[in-house]
Design a protein around this nucleic acid. Sequence first.
DNA 1: CCTTCATTTGACCGATTGGTCAAATCGGAA
DNA 2: TTCCGATTTGACCAATCGGTCAAATGAAGG
Lengths: 212, 212
Amino acid sequence: MEENTAQPQSLAPKPPRTRIQKAKREAILEAGLDVFSEAGFRGATLDRIAAAAGLSKPNLLYYYPSKEAIHDALLRDLLSTWLDPLTAIDPDGNPLDELLGYVQRKLAMARDFPRESRLFANEIIQGAPHMHAHLRDGLKPLVDRMARVIDQWIADGKIAPVDPVHLIFSVWALTQHYADFDVQVRTVLGDEDPFPGAEAHLETLFRRLLTP
Amino acid sequence: MEENTAQPQSLAPKPPRTRIQKAKREAILEAGLDVFSEAGFRGATLDRIAAAAGLSKPNLLYYYPSKEAIHDALLRDLLSTWLDPLTAIDPDGNPLDELLGYVQRKLAMARDFPRESRLFANEIIQGAPHMHAHLRDGLKPLVDRMARVIDQWIADGKIAPVDPVHLIFSVWALTQHYADFDVQVRTVLGDEDPFPGAEAHLETLFRRLLTP
DNA sequence: CCTTCATTTGACCGATTGGTCAAATCGGAA
DNA sequence: TTCCGATTTGACCAATCGGTCAAATGAAGG
């Protein structure tokens, strides 16, 4: 390993230096995702996170200085990837295909990353005390921008007229529901895997809503 | 001295005897709804509930024997009223009107009883540890029954073909979203009241989905 | 070996948690 | 007034919480 040049240290939380640090940090975030998504911020305990990560509590606090630091790191990592499917919409593509593709990607995230969805849901339901600024500075401008794209599509007669912001809310609500309310969904459906049916249903729903 | 109260004590939680008991119990449930819906079960504390109800902690525990007892009482009271809009659907009415009316009633509940919606959401997201049996014995049979009604409407050509269970999920997701994700919705919409726009949007959405 | 720094841990701390208990107070009937 | 049960409270408790700290251990180079 060669010496790296002296970089001007920015105000980043803590730059991982060694290989072991990186691995332990990841294990902690993984464990934190498990516990926070299942119990919420206040319901989660450092002991449970430490146990899930295979560390002692002081050892965990050696890598992250506090419970809130772990939670904040998770939320920071989450928000951008959570909005990726929305930014992937191409204003120059076929409007109906773009929106149906967005729905499908969002549903796939609910299927493949239910813990992330529940972490987010817990935070929002309880008033977003650790995320309000991020919503205002990150999510709102993005939604505003996409709403203008959708309005243009409507003006061009490419899709049926809808309120674009409530349309986006509908995509979020309908897809995340299958992750956040998983227990309820599976109780009603029995053993059946909810997602094939959900995909077909949402495709039908948004196609009928948006076809001019 | 003989007493006239020869009632055989059943295993009911605690029959309210006096007027003051009834009032204090109600105040406690009201305070519990505030705190539990905002913080979840584990995040809520007896001290906060007692303070919100205007009682000392031991006094609170005089009326309900434990934190869990308050939570259980709230959930028990909630589930039936929460499902009322669904049971109010008339199998012999006009299918489209019945379903659109159901959506409207459910959205009104999200507007008028957001705390109840968030209490429910917190419980389900965290795996429904205190409600699983109620979902199985109360909610599932009701959904199954309504699904048969909707299937009959489809078979009669009264509404367009849809998966009835996922249709019900859609109503829940789209309406409760405006209560549970209130912070996010209002951050994106700014000062605007979300509900008029939501009502118009959902009417459009379900009309286009269900019109044959 | 020695030195140095990263890592790990047991013991511990003050605050908060849900809950108990005996004693005090209240309120209405006789 | 007296009495008696309903109600209320201050003091307290064991468990758990997030977090600290000094000391021990590990690893790697000289």
